[in-house]
Design a binder for these strands. Structure first.
Lengths: 208, 208
DNA sequence: CGGCATCCGTGACGATACTG
DNA sequence: CAGTATCGTCACGGATGCCG
């Protein structure tokens, strides 16, 4: 629990940084945009964060209305952390940061951790309103909920229902997309992304 | 000089936070969006930052290509710090943070510092493409460059040239705008903002 | 006087160990 | 599984000193 070290500036950006400017906080938000996660899962997908800092951040975020802590129903009764609506509204902040950070991404360094759903953020803006999209990579699968009013923005693993589109690509194509070196449309056109599914987006992508 | 504490994640948002996630960095960017500033001016407009941290951040930012250090011409030959193009590209990040932080702004606390040009950020999106706009508040004046390809995004004090529009408002109206409680258009319509000038925006605002 | 560098006390951070 | 406890280290904030 931090004693709230505020910038004490009457500026909305400074106020935002008072709440989400601490180390790890925005990356926790990025993880929780994938839906409810348990403490251990968060810790596993945030390599480098110490257990006490993660616990402290989750308490701060709950106190500040960004997350809620909920007990899962009996079989497997664990606690999960979940973004509130207010927390999910941080998506534009992460999108802006991710857009800016593309130029710094470069090639993957040997020390860089990687999770499949981290590729969700750069794809979000290219698939606006596409419904449910499943993406299969060598590193794993994830899915995107596009146009959803509430609930998670993306999720780990395969889509829970039949997706409107399914994208299969190799690691190189995926990193090129993440770096902004090529657009999704270009990658599809070059045959580097295999598109299946019956949704409108799947058809639009195949026709392009 | 920091030994670069990276998140080591192959994610563009994490990469961005590697560069601008340290305390004070994004607020220094906010200050430099107002154009070249001297060390002492930065220190004065960032109450709470210690001298060594400010010097260290400026070095890091220069090394990372966000800022440049330049010597002013002879009369008053001081060093000024200035954003590079890459640094100015952080504007969308600050806009997203500012938009999200509006809900946390509330009334001004007794401990809150305030500078007139901090009100520039919330006004930027409401005056898109408006040219040169001067704003006069009780706390001081500032001006906005809207639609400029490069150069500062806003500046302290009155506009250097005849502005396309000049806005005069009281403190309450300005804080209401900053909080998003009312739009600029509404405030003009309610007679809480006095609009003068011959530019297209000035006329459009007056007619609304 | 502007632009830092140094020193120092406090607190945040990261790693590991441990517990209900 | 979900954290708490402990500890060494480093970053931060404040004050002061130095040097052009």
């Amino acid at each position: 629990m931090s004693p709230r070290r505020s910038y004490d500036q009457y500026c909305s950006a400074a106020r935002a940084l008072d709440l989400v400017g601490d180390r790890w906080t925005l990356l926790i938000v990025r993880e929780l945009l994938a839906g409810p996660r348990r403490y251990t899962d968060l810790h596993a997908d945030l390599p480098g964060v110490s257990t006490d800092v993660l616990a402290s951040r989750l308490k701060d975020m709950e106190r500040d209305g960004l997350t809620t802590r909920r007990r899962l129903p009996p079989p497997g009764a664990a606690f999960v952390y979940e973004l509130t609506l207010r927390g999910r509204e941080l998506l534009p902040v992460l999108l802006a940061l991710g857009e800016w950070g593309r130029a710094e991404l470069g090639e993957r360094r040997p020390t860089d951790a990687l999770r499949a759903h981290w590729f969700a953020l750069p794809l979000l803006r290219e698939l606006e309103g596409a419904g449910l999209v499943e993406v299969r990579l060598e590193e794993g699968d994830f899915h995107l909920y596009l146009g959803a009013e509430d609930g998670p923005v993306y999720g780990d693993g395969r889509a829970p229902d039949e997706p409107d589109a399914r994208l299969v690509m190799d690691a190189g194509t995926c990193t090129a997309l993440a770096q902004g070196e090529s657009s999704l449309l270009e990658a599809v056109r070059d045959g580097r992304v295999e598109v299946t599914g019956d949704g409108a987006v799947a058809k639009a992508l195949r026709e392009a």
